[in-house]
Amino acid sequence: MRIVLLSLAASLVAATPALANEVRVETRAGVYWTDGATKGTAGVAAGYDFDLGPAAFSGLEVSGDKILTSGTKVAWGFTGRLGAKLAGSKLYGTGGYTTEPCSQCEGSWHLGAGYERGFMGNLYGKVEYRHYFGRNGFNDANAVVAGVGVKF
């Protein structure tokens, strides 16, 4: 039984690089702006990308980002991604919902786009833009972040 389990484990490890479906975790930082005010932002994200064939993918992501100023809190984002797989990189569009970034704010829907580039091994870097749609008297906002992550 032990030999069967070891053989199965070895075949799964050997097959893992061939899988296009991947889990990823990242850290990121950038700028957030609205109404002429620009603030720094930092956060983390975890996601899963699904293979849609040799040239396309879709994915889901959960993120926590904080505007780096007093009176703000971590805004939780729930985002979908859809894009093209290029040679060692991904170009994609995003859309989803982000919870309120401060006590007097409201959550908002967001749309954006990004570019992700693989580095050595499972490391990657990315740049992403998001536009947050204001509602109930709140103005629209924007963010650009750069991130570094690991794929599993």
Rank of each mutant, 00 (worst) to 15 (best):
N142Y: 09
G137L: 08
N142I: 07
P101A: 09
V62N: 04
A146R: 07
L91S: 07
N142A: 11
A15P: 02
G77E: 01
R81S: 09
G59L: 04
D140G: 11
Y129D: 04
T69I: 12
A46R: 08
F119M: 00
S108P: 02
W76N: 07
S11L: 14
A146F: 12
L6Y: 12
K73M: 05
T38R: 12
W33N: 05
V4C: 13
G59S: 04
G43D: 02
N122T: 08
V31G: 14
F138C: 10
Y92P: 00
P54Y: 10
G47L: 08
D51N: 14
F50C: 10
L91G: 06
V23F: 15
A56P: 04
T38I: 13
V44W: 11
L68H: 07
F138G: 08
D65P: 00
Y124R: 04
A84P: 06
F119I: 00
F133Y: 15
G64S: 11
T72V: 02
A37L: 15
V74C: 00
A42C: 10
A10L: 13
T27G: 15
L111E: 08
S103Q: 14
G114F: 04
A75D: 00
A45E: 03
V44M: 12
S70Y: 07
Y48R: 08
A37S: 15
V23E: 14
A113E: 03
G59Q: 01
I67E: 01
F78S: 02
V74I: 15
V13N: 10
N136G: 08
T41M: 15
V74Q: 01
G47Q: 05
V31D: 12
G149Q: 06
G147A: 08
G107A: 05
R81W: 03
P101T: 05
A143F: 04
C102K: 12
L5V: 13
V4F: 13
G93M: 12
E116P: 03
W109V: 03
A46C: 09
G112S: 04
H110A: 03
G88I: 01
T72G: 01
G125F: 05
L111Y: 13
S11C: 10
A113V: 10
L6S: 12
F133H: 08
F50N: 08
M120T: 01
G112M: 02
G80M: 07
G77L: 02
S103L: 11
G43A: 07
A20R: 11
L68P: 01
V150M: 15
A20T: 08
G83L: 04
G125D: 07
G114C: 06
N139I: 06
G71N: 05
G121S: 05
N139G: 14
R2P: 14
G64Y: 06
R135Y: 01
K90V: 09
T41H: 08
V145A: 09
H131W: 11
F152S: 09
T16N: 14
R28E: 13
L86E: 06
A56T: 07
Q104A: 15
A42M: 10
S7N: 13
A29P: 03
T72S: 07
E61R: 14
G134I: 00
F152V: 11
N142H: 14
G134W: 01
V145S: 04
T27A: 14
S103G: 14
Y115H: 11
